[in-house]
């Protein structure tokens, strides 16, 4: 056999093997790998590189070396999943850099971080003043996790005491002009509903590039034809406006009537409608 055929054959074989090995080793990002996983990855690649370009080398030696460099990291990862103390040993522990707003100089020194390094890491987290930080910890992966003091944290709905409607993940129901049946079923909707909604918007399924439905069954679409304007879903704001208008009407009737009994009926219902609006308005926004 000519050498080039051997090289092609070996390359194909090793690519397949390498593909499966890296797949089995897991989905961690390069940045999350610890130094050991990083090195074993490089060694695996190196073995493959050496054996693909050298037709003389014995491929079985390559495969043996690869399996060793695969099995040991695999075993280490497996045991680390089971045992906390082994994990501390292989992945290292996190180091507290700032506690109660005070910088731990000894820990900085221990990890070999200068003050500039610390400030840089803090700036990575959008913190420019060290005194804004309540707690900061250097993770084993080398990233700094920062908990700002309460007054420096972004305002949330919880801080404001706002009540918000729960939000579930939207489901894609049409992709590339094709209806996806499973997400539709997850929303307990069917194709008839989808066709009706699209008819309301006056678009055909073939023209839809992407359509998503949210947990209230509101459909938003993107069309292939970008010149067509798609109406925004208006059902909920419209309903809220209707409710508010009815409430105002009832109040008006209550003021306009001279009959005491009718007046009370209007007032009672206006009050009722007000509580109804309060109950539902978070869901209609």
């Amino acid at each position: 056999m000519p050498d080039w055929v051997i090289i092609i054959g070996k390359s194909l074989l090793l690519i397949t093997v390498l593909f499966f090995l890296t797949k089995w080793l897991g989905k961690k990002q390069i940045s999350q790998l610890n130094i050991f996983e990083y090195i074993s990855g490089i060694v695996l690649g190196g073995i493959v590189a050496i054996h693909t370009i050298d037709p003389e080398s014995n491929i079985f030696y390559g495969l043996i070396a690869m399996s060793v460099w695969f099995l040991i990291p695999f075993a280490v990862e497996f045991i680390s999943l089971k045992s906390k103390s082994f994990r501390n040993f292989t992945e290292g522990k996190s180091t507290v850099f700032i506690q109660d707003g005070k910088i731990m100089e000894d820990n900085l020194k221990k990890e070999g971080y200068s003050t500039d390094d610390l400030l840089e890491k803090l700036r990575d987290n959008n913190v420019f003043l060290a005194s804004d930080v309540e707690f900061a910890v250097l993770e084993p992966s080398g990233t700094l996790s920062v908990l700002p003091k309460k007054e420096n944290q972004p305002l949330t709905a919880k801080d404001l005491g706002l009540k918000l409607a729960p939000q579930k993940e939207p489901q894609a129901v049409i992709m590339d002009g094709k209806v996806l049946l499973e997400p539709l079923a997850n929303l307990s909707l069917n194709t008839n509903w989808l066709e009706t909604e699209l008819d309301k918007m006056n678009v055909s399924i073939e023209n839809v590039f992407l359509a998503q439905a949210d947990n209230n069954g509101q459909l938003t679409v993107d069309l292939y034809d970008d010149k067509i304007a798609v109406p925004e879903p208006t059902e909920k704001p419209l309903l809220l406006a209707t409710l508010k208008k009815c409430q105002a009407d009832l109040e008006l009737f209550a003021l306009a009537t001279n009959n005491e009994e009718t007046k009370q009926m209007y007032e009672k219902n206006s009050q009722k409608l007000k509580t109804a609006i309060d109950l539902v308005q978070f869901y209609l926004k």
Binding site: A165, P166, N216, E235, L238, L239
Partner: peptide, 18 residues
């Protein structure tokens, strides 16, 4: 409209509210 929204929502809380 409220009844329609209630039937369409698959989240228990919003269903109840509607």
């Amino acid at each position: 409209s409220l009844q329609m929204l209630a039937e369409k929502s698959y989240d228990q809380k919003s269903y109840q509210a509607f």
